[in-house]
């Protein structure tokens, strides 16, 4: 082995220099991040109607106001609770149907855009890009445009959420399908199975637990989305919340009931889907 020249550093020095350089880069990154956060916050505060510190102590004013009104009118609460159940059901229905539609369409898109499974391999980039676009379009835009075309109701929200869900689930589904074992597919191909048969009997049983778990997670997300879309006029509990808020004082007991219903529903669904997903992924199959 050739002797190192006296000017070249020893391994220890080399290592220490490397550590120093790494620390310097780390420090620069952290400093940059702090500057970005601080200036970004200042900018956002400057463009906001109210400042951060003058509003901070008022955060609890509105909750306090609505809760105090709700306490004085506590006798109305059960009646409100019952009267809002239909719109809560509508919100849940929008989320469920759009998850179902999105999952089915996403499934097809996933098959068409996964290497090794695609029916037309040349079109994989086309399907991938279209899924990217579907994921990127905000639901609110599609919902508002469809409200203009179809009138106020649950269908625009359903289509809007299903559109986004298709793109989001399609991507996740295709990532899961990329890791399947190809032996069953090859076996089916060797006995002359068609593309549909290969996919249905060779791939779907392998990915079903993962896919169901993703779809459940989407359902949780879609409940929130459907509540928000209701707020801009697509029906459901969000719409009731908007009307109650616009009315202002005198209907705050309704606001409290809607908040409570939303909170409880989201908690219950999150909890149930958490449990179900744990069983799906750890148990390895649908029980």
């Amino acid at each position: 082995m050739a002797m190192t020249s006296p000017s070249s550093p020893t391994p220890t020095e080399d290592y220490l220099a490397l550590v120093r350089r790494k620390r310097l880069y780390g420090a620069i990154l952290v400093a940059l991040f702090v500057v970005l956060m601080a200036s970004g916050f200042n900018l956002a505060e400057g463009r906001n109607a109210g400042g951060f510190f003058e509003g901070l102590h008022r955060i609890f004013d509105f909750p306090a106001e609505i809760f105090s009104e709700a306490f004085t009118n506590w006798r109305n609460m059960p009646a409100h609770l019952v009267s809002f159940l239909p719109s809560l059901l509508e919100t849940l229905n929008i989320a469920a149907v759009s998850t179902l539609i999105g999952a089915v369409l996403g499934m097809f898109l996933a098959f068409l855009s996964t290497r090794g499974l695609a029916k037309w391999p040349a079109l994989i980039p086309v399907f991938r890009r279209s899924m990217d676009i579907m994921r990127a379009v905000p639901e609110i835009v599609i919902a508002l445009v469809l409200i203009f075309l179809l009138g106020v109701g649950p269908v625009p929200a359903m289509i809007a959420i299903a559109f986004h869900t298709t793109g989001a689930l399609g991507k996740l589904f295709s990532e899961a399908a990329e890791n399947v074992d190809f032996k069953p597919v090859e076996g089916l191909a060797s006995v002359g199975g068609s593309w549909l048969q290969r996919v249905w009997f060779g791939v779907v049983p392998q990915v079903a637990p993962n896919w169901s778990s993703y779809a459940l997670l989407r359902f949780e997300i879609n409940i929130r989305a459907s509540a928000i879309l209701g707020f801009v006029g697509a029906g459901g509990i969000g719409y009731d919340l908007k009307t109650a808020l616009q009315w202002g004082m005198g209907k705050y007991d309704q606001v409290v009931v809607i908040f409570a219903l939303l909170f409880i529903t989201i908690m219950i669904v999150d909890h149930m889907s958490d449990r179900a997903r744990e069983r799906l992924v750890k148990g390895g199959q649908i029980a």
């Binding site: 916050f41 956002a44 109607a49 400042g51 951060f52 509003g55 955060i59 004013d61």
Partner: peptide
């Protein structure tokens, strides 16, 4: 939050 801080990006 919009009750406390008004409309805006923050």
């Amino acid at each position: 939050l919009s009750r406390a801080f008004g409309p805006g990006p923050m």
